[in-house]
Simulated scan of single mutants.
Amino acid sequence: MKLTAPQRVPLDLTHPRVMGILNVTPDSFSDGKAYDGVEAAVSHGIAMADEGAMVIDVGGESTRPGAKRVSAAEQRKRVVDVIRRLRIDLNEYHPDVWISVDTTLTAVAEPALRAGASLINDISAGREDPAMFDLAAAQSVPIVLMHMQGTPETMQRNPRYNDVVAEVQAFLLERADDAAAAGLTREQIVIDPGVGFGKTVDHNLRLLASLADFVATGHPVMLGASRKGFIGKVAESTTQQAKDRVGGTCATTTLGVWAGVSLFRVHDVRPNLQAAQVTAAIRLAQQNTGAAS
Results as ranks from 00 to 15, higher is better:
Ala216Cys: 11
Phe214Leu: 11
Thr239Phe: 03
Leu211Ser: 04
Ser210Tyr: 05
Glu236Phe: 02
Phe214Ile: 12
Lys243Ala: 15
Ala235Thr: 08
Arg227Trp: 01
His219Ile: 05
Thr238Cys: 11
Thr239Gly: 04
Ser237Asp: 15
Asp213His: 14
Val221Leu: 09
Val221Gln: 06
Leu223Ile: 14
Leu207Tyr: 05
Ser226Asp: 05
Ala212Ser: 15
Ala225Gly: 15
Met222Pro: 07
Ser237Pro: 00
Ala216Phe: 07
Lys243Leu: 05
Ala209Asp: 14
Leu211Ile: 11
Thr217Val: 12
Pro220Glu: 03
Ala209Leu: 06
Thr217Cys: 09
Ala212Val: 09
Ser226Trp: 04
Thr217Asn: 12
Asp213Cys: 08
Lys228Met: 07
Ser226Glu: 05
Ser226Val: 13
Ala209Phe: 01
Gln240Tyr: 01
Ser210Phe: 12
Lys243Glu: 14
Ile231Leu: 14
Ala216Gly: 10
Arg206Met: 01
Thr239Trp: 02
Glu236Asp: 12
Ala235Lys: 03
Ser237Ala: 15
Ser226Cys: 10
Thr238Phe: 11
Gly218Ala: 06
Phe230Arg: 02
Ser226His: 06
Ala225Cys: 14
Ala242Phe: 02
Thr239Ile: 03
Phe214Met: 12
Arg227Tyr: 05
Ala216Ile: 08
Thr238Asp: 07
Ser226Asn: 09
Ala216Pro: 09
Leu208Phe: 11
Lys228Thr: 08
Gly218Gln: 09
Val234Ser: 01
Leu208His: 10
Gly224Tyr: 11
